[in-house]
């Protein structure tokens, strides 16, 4: 167990070192930059028209990040049975 843990830490440390060399600590943790990502750009979830997917359940205005986050926050409460039960 202990050796496995050490190994994990070592590997992770190595990895972090490699990462730091590239980007710098502060930026990496606080700001989600694309780094040196070379691939295709991805649409942000809130930039989709909620009507675009037939499976959409929540509502927000296209491009309204705050609205999307609020919709998701309220949906997250479905994972809290105290809310459904009503004894919170």
């Amino acid at each position: 167990m202990i050796s496995a843990r050490k190994l994990v830490i070592t590997v992770a440390a190595l990895a972090v070192t490699a990462g730091l060399a590239g980007c710098g600590e502060r930026e990496q943790v606080v700001v989600y930059q694309q780094g040196k990502y070379q691939g295709k750009p991805d649409t942000k979830p809130w930039d989709n028209d909620p009507g675009a997917s037939v499976y959409t359940s929540s509502k927000w205005a296209k491009g309204d990040q705050g609205g999307w986050e609020t919709a998701l926050k309220s949906r997250t409460q479905n994972q809290n049975e105290y809310v459904r039960i009503g004894d919170q």
């Binding site: 989600y32 694309q34 990502y37 070379q38 991805d42």
Partner: peptide
């Protein structure tokens, strides 16, 4: 991860962080 090791080591830099983490 916020500071994802996979992303750091990827030789072709195919990983990215979305704005929601």
């Amino acid at each position: 991860c916020s500071d994802a090791p996979c992303m750091a080591v990827c030789p072709v830099d195919c990983f990215y962080h979305t704005e929601e983490g």
